[in-house]
Every structure is written in structure tokens, then in C-alpha cells.
Design a binder for these strands. Structure first.
Lengths: 137, 137
DNA sequence: CTAGGAGCTCGACTCGACTCTAGATCAAGC
DNA sequence: GCTTGATCTAGAGTCGAGTCGAGCTCCTAG
């Protein structure tokens, strides 16, 4: 049960999202926070569970390579609310395709790397066999 | 049969590797070419099939996220030749692990993105059903 | 012989995404 | 009241990986 009314300081949010406080402020400047962060009497940022959730989504999007401007676009759409679902869906689908493609690329790279590793391993196996004076017919 | 003695200009290499001529010169400065590129009488670079092969490996390593300095390290070891196989193998294994981990990360991101897409799709399905005045019991 | 297209070097610039600094403010504990 | 540690803002700096430009040279086709 995530209590929707408990609030956090920027430091706590940093701890919970894995982002640095610098990055949190940076993201806010870049306009990728769901709603403008509230402030307490002293002017410091006050975050809610909602913000954490949104930030976690942002982290996922960034980790999977979505550029900041595109996250901003998504955020703007979400802020606008009703009527933007189509564009949001399109944006996510596009990203989905890119990530899928990238995974494919990485797999192809991995195959070659695995192959190269195999060559080196063979090299050492061979050396060992010779060292042991094995009986290769 | 790749003729090992045919040579190419930088432009041809660019066409064949997908790298720009700028990038080819940049890679050379960065020391990630197997051997110092030969030059013709006029001082222009002369590439061989070997260079192409090496560059293709570099492209794979870069695509899979190996930083340039690490490729340089690998290149240096390869240049030194005998006795460095162990370190080369270690380096490749490390990279293999990183790439594998990254693929895992991307899969995790993809799952969440897929989930989000599902939510939007449900939203539209629902809207459509209502529009059609369906008989949901 | 000359025009145009590649190439050359060196150094500067870009871009994206942070990351850090300075100098001020604030809140809480002693 | 004072200190200490967290926050604040605005703006500058960093880092990686290219990317580009200026000014020059060189080959080749017409």
C-alpha cells in the first residue's frame, strides 16, 4: 500500500529512484516531471508517491534509450490528459520497436563476440593439450 | 575469397564499413586500427581487406557499447601478439558479460513498456466497445 | 593544361546527458 | 543562539564520440 499522501524530500527521492539530486533537478528543468513539483514553506521541493512512480517510468524510458526530448513530449501529452492517448500509444509503440531492434542488434553483436571468445578458448585448450602431451591421433 | 592484396581508398572503406571518412580518420587517431595504415606515394591512406575485417570487428564492439579506450586496449594487445591472448580473452569475456546484462536490462524495460502499451490498447478497446454499444453482461 | 573531386592535417565545434560550483537559505539538534 | 547538513538557483564544466571547416595537395578525365 503506497500511501499517496506521504511526501518526500529530494534526497529521499534520490535514494529511492537511484537518480542523483542533481539529476532530479535537471529532469525537472527539462520538463519531464508529471506535474510541477510542489514546494514547502521554505521553497524546497516536496515529492509524492506519484512523482516516484513517474520517475520510475522515466528511468525505464531513459535506460532503454529514449532521448530526454521524447520523454518530455510524452510528459506533455500526459499532462494534457484526455484526447492524447492515441499519440501517447503511438510514441510508446515506436519506442517499443526501437528497443526490440536494439536487442536484436545486441544479440547479433553478442554472437560474434561469443564466436571470438570461442577462438581464444580453443587456442588455450590446444595449448593445454600440447602441454599435457595428449594422444591426439 | 577475399583477395588479401587488393587495396582501397578511405572512401571505399567508408562505403564498405558504413563509417564516415571522418570517423575512419578519427579511429586511426584513437589508435584502434590493427596496424598503422599504409600510405601511397601521395600520402593517402591505403586500406587492405585485413583493415576492413578489423574495422568490422570494431563496429561490432562499438555497437555493443564498448568504449573507444577499451577497443584501443584490445587493439594494442592484438598488435603485441603472442602472450597477450589471455588478457584479450578476459577483455572479451568481460564485454560479453556486460552486453548480456544490457540485453537483460532492455528486456526488463521492454516488459514495462509492453505493459503500458497494453493499458492504452485496453483503453481504446473499451472505448470502441462502448461506441458500438456492445452487450457486455 | 586545367578543373573537379578525393584526400590530407589540425584544430575547433556539436550534442546529449548529466555533473558540479558558488553562494545563499533553511531546519533541527545541542 | 549556533552549527551542521540538506536544499536552493543560475550557470559553468565535463565527457564521449564523433563531426565539421579551412586551407592545402594530389590524381584523373576532358
Amino acid at each position: 500500500m503506497t500511501d499517496n499522501s506521504t511526501t518526500m524530500t529530494i534526497g529521499e527521492v534520490a535514494a529511492r529512484t537511484g537518480l542523483s539530486v542533481h539529476t532530479l533537478r535537471f529532469y525537472e528543468r527539462e520538463g519531464i516531471l508529471a506535474d510541477p513539483v510542489r514546494r514547502d514553506a521554505g521553497g524546497r521541493r516536496v515529492y509524492t508517491e506519484n512523482d516516484i512512480e513517474w520517475l520510475n517510468l522515466c528511468v525505464i524510458l531513459r535506460t532503454s534509450g529514449m532521448p530526454v526530448p521524447e520523454i518530455r513530449r510524452y510528459t506533455e501529452l500526459a499532462r494534457q490528459g484526455d484526447g492524447t492517448e492515441g499519440e501517447r500509444l503511438a510514441l510508446l509503440r515506436e519506442h517499443h520497436a526501437r528497443v526490440t531492434a536494439q536487442i536484436g542488434d545486441l544479440h547479433r553483436c553478442l554472437d560474434l563476440i561469443t564466436y571470438k571468445i570461442g577462438i581464444y578458448e580453443d587456442f588455450f585448450d590446444e595449448a593445454e593439450r600440447e602441454h599435457a602431451g595428449a594422444l591426439t591421433p
